[in-house]
């Protein structure tokens, strides 16, 4: 399957999930063991009314989805996946008004477990907003 076709299928799949749809997530790219998802700024997702900064929970949801997409896209072809654990470090608040971009890499897969690293950024790509590491199930 050519990469563009694979990206299109993955996009349709991810963007059809109700919670991803509600958060306005868009799958940008997907390749062997990695994925990139975008989540545009939305005032409904604000967590701190004083600053207009997006809630950490919405960033978690984006990173979780992106990590899951990276697992599914791994060359070992896991059929399905679910999160076992996910740790997120919040390095700085995301700048209000900017799209949040998440990139995830599935760096190791065993018969039963997939290990993932992810980062979230806003327009300033050199200073990540958040970083995550997670373990996911591999269903074959």
């Amino acid at each position: 399957m050519d990469p563009e076709h694979k990206t299109r299928i993955a996009r349709q799949f991810i963007e059809a999930l109700p919670h991803c749809q509600a958060l306005g997530m868009r799958l940008e790219t997907v390749g062997p063991g990695h994925a990139e998802l975008h989540m545009p700024y939305d005032p409904r997702l604000v967590g701190d009314p004083d600053t207009g900064v997006i809630h950490g929970g919405a960033v978690s949801a984006l990173m979780d989805t992106c990590s899951g997409a990276a697992v599914i896209a791994h060359p070992s072809n896991p059929g399905a996946t679910a999160t076992i654990d996910l740790r997120i470090d919040y390095m700085r608040p995301a700048t209000p008004g900017q799209t949040i971009v998440a990139r995830a890499e599935c760096y190791h897969v065993t018969r039963t477990v997939a290990f993932v690293r992810a980062t979230a950024m806003d327009d300033d790509r050199d200073n990540p907003v958040a970083a995550a590491t997670g373990a996911f199930t591999v269903e074959r």
């Binding site: 109700p18 919670h19 809630h55 929970g57 978690s60 949801a61 979780d64 989805t65 679910a82």
Partner: peptide
Amino acid sequence: PALHGGATAAFLEV
């Protein structure tokens, strides 16, 4: 069907 892990994470964080 199942709840999104992100929705659960957000619920816990809230």
